[in-house]
Simulated scan of single mutants.
Amino acid sequence: MGVSGSAVEAVDLVKDFGETRAVHGVSLAVPAGSIFGLLGPNGAGKTTTLRMLLGIIDPSSGRRSVLGHERPLEAAPLVGYLPEERGLYPSMHAREAIAFMGALRGLPLKEGRTRADELLGAHGLGDWARKPIRSLSKGMAQTVQLLGTLVHRPRLIVLDEPFSGLDAINQGRLEQLIRAQAEGGATIIFSTHVIAHAERLCERIAIIAKGRVAFEGSVNDARGRLRPMVRLRTREQDGGWRAAIPAEAQRQGEEWLFELPESGPEPLLKALIDGDAGIETLAIERPGLHDAFVAIAGSEAASSMGVVEQAA
């Protein structure tokens, strides 16, 4: 295990493809037993970073370790990896596909078939066992591939854009699977450009933009970079109490929207009461991870994330 209980570590990873630098000195540490999100728009360098971490490709420079192994491929039997490019043999039955994927990680086929039946049954999918992959929907086939990623009971699970192309039901099923694996002690890393999934699942995240780590830390720390927002509606429209509202406050219909002053809510509340503002509603809202992403990575990086975030 790495320093301070990290399951995966990277120090100044760089990857060049010819004259193009895809990853610029990425450093991160993934705590053992955590759910860690690699967050960024398409083309940010997430997949290249994951492949370097797993030893699928070598970095141009920098160091990495996986479950205490400086050569990541040595840890391969302990790792489950779901790549962004999905692929199963269409004629293979779901049960056999799961067992086959386990065999690639050293699990005997007989044991793999037993575990495949257990996994399918545990998730209410037992009737899929004898169905060929070609007969399954995209979401069903992706679930089978995910179960194949887990069948050898890995200590580290790496999922590259696992929610891509899934409907809401299968997205929810995948979130449940991820939580269950973490509760069982596994470390999970997943990359995504869908902010809502990272906000619901992750304890820690790394935000990657243009091949660089713009932020690494807890979701709360990311959100904490922005001040809470105040939504205020009053019965009176004018009065001395207006001086308590920042000059940059925005008017949205009958409400005022502004950042909570550094002095906190108490002086604001006192000024409103003393000034007979007639408070009808006053709500303090913490910024979401989407707002934090925009602030950290910039509007350009966030432009491709916004539509996905609203749809999630």
Rank of each mutant, 00 (worst) to 15 (best):
R130F: 12
A75R: 00
D16K: 09
D12T: 12
P265Q: 15
A129W: 07
M101Y: 15
D238E: 14
A76P: 04
G165T: 02
K210L: 13
V11L: 11
A302W: 02
R130Y: 12
I56D: 00
P267G: 10
L150N: 03
A292L: 07
P287L: 04
L159S: 05
R113G: 01
P41K: 07
R63F: 06
R231C: 09
L54R: 03
A29C: 08
H290G: 12
E96G: 10
G264S: 07
A76I: 01
G172E: 14
R113Y: 05
A295Y: 07
Q176C: 08
S60Y: 01
E262H: 12
E280H: 07
A103V: 11
A97P: 10
R242N: 10
A247V: 13
V26G: 02
Q176R: 13
S263G: 11
I279A: 08
G87L: 05
I56K: 00
G239V: 08
G139K: 03
L39A: 05
P261I: 07
G18R: 05
L73F: 06
V144L: 04
V194D: 00
K138I: 04
L53E: 06
P90L: 03
H290D: 12
R21N: 06
L166H: 03
A116P: 00
G172A: 15
L257A: 12
A302C: 08
